[in-house]
Simulated scan of single mutants.
Amino acid sequence: MDDGAHAGLPNYLRSFTVDAVDVEIIRILAADGRITNVDLAAALGLAPSTVHARVRSLVERGVITGFHAAVDQRALGKGLQAIIGVTLRPGARAGSIRAFADDVRRLPQVLQVWFVGGTDDFLVHIAVEGTSQMREFVVEHLSAQQSVASTRTSIVFEYHRNTVTAPFR
């Protein structure tokens, strides 16, 4: 738990001890976020009240930041996914980093946005119906922005999320 040295700081600035039981709870929840507390407790060999308290603590401390549904984008008619590397113009970077991230992540085609170091400034994960919608997304929502210097698109053939597999067919 918190050693007291970080009292009063927001959770994301505190350092917490995560023990072996917490790690196992996280592993099981990452594989199945819908597991019941009773089943989670049985898998760990602990009392349900103990597991409930530990999960609540992990959430309150910001170790677990949410529980998410894994969505098959193909079932929604979005069978093409891509990761688009975006490089911002050097002179526009300081003021445009936050604005770019805020604008792009609100677009319905966007699944995830990462601000990264390296060749690209951002990686944008999208799901669209087909190649014409991908082209439209890149041209209208990325290349059209004054702050964007270049884009580089990689098609996603298959991906695996932690222990949850989401194959493309």
Rank of each mutant, 00 (worst) to 15 (best):
M1I: 14
D3E: 10
D3A: 13
G4P: 13
A5S: 12
H6T: 15
G8C: 08
P10L: 13
P10C: 14
R14M: 09
T17I: 12
D22H: 07
V23A: 15
E24C: 05
E24R: 14
E24T: 06
I25M: 02
I26W: 04
I26K: 05
R27L: 08
I28N: 00
L29D: 03
A30V: 04
A30D: 11
A31I: 00
D32Y: 01
D32M: 02
D32K: 04
G33S: 10
G33V: 00
R34H: 10
R34K: 07
I35Q: 06
I35T: 10
T36V: 04
V38R: 08
V38Q: 11
D39M: 01
D39Y: 00
D39V: 01
L40D: 07
A42P: 00
L44C: 14
G45Q: 08
G45L: 04
A47Q: 12
A47C: 05
A47T: 10
A47F: 01
P48Q: 10
P48E: 11
P48L: 01
S49L: 11
S49A: 15
S49M: 09
T50Q: 12
T50K: 10
V51C: 01
H52V: 02
H52K: 14
A53Y: 07
R54T: 07
R54Y: 08
R54D: 05
R56I: 05
S57R: 15
L58C: 06
V59L: 08
E60M: 15
R61G: 04
R61H: 13
G62W: 11
V63E: 05
H68L: 05
H68P: 00
A69M: 03
A70T: 02
A70F: 05
V71S: 00
V71P: 00
D72R: 07
R74K: 08
A75N: 04
L76W: 03
K78P: 00
L80N: 06
Q81P: 07
Q81G: 15
A82T: 09
A82G: 04
A82L: 04
A82F: 11
I83P: 00
I83A: 07
I84D: 03
I84C: 01
G85N: 10
G85T: 06
T87M: 08
P90L: 14
P90Y: 11
A94C: 02
R98V: 15
R98I: 11
R98A: 14
A99M: 12
F100G: 02
A101S: 13
D103F: 13
R105E: 13
P108M: 08
P108T: 03
Q109Y: 06
V110N: 06
L111Q: 09
Q112M: 09
F115L: 14
V116K: 09
V116T: 15
V116S: 01
V116Y: 04
G117I: 09
G118T: 14
G118V: 09
D120C: 06
D120W: 14
D120I: 00
D120R: 13
D121V: 14
L123E: 12
L123V: 11
H125I: 03
T131P: 07
M134P: 01
V139S: 06
E140S: 11
A144C: 07
A144L: 10
A144E: 11
Q145T: 06
Q145C: 08
Q145N: 11
Q146F: 12
Q146T: 14
S147C: 15
V148P: 07
V148G: 11
V148K: 08
A149I: 04
A149V: 01
S150T: 13
T151P: 15
R152E: 03
S154E: 08
F157S: 04
H160W: 01
N162E: 13
A166R: 05
P167C: 02
R169K: 07
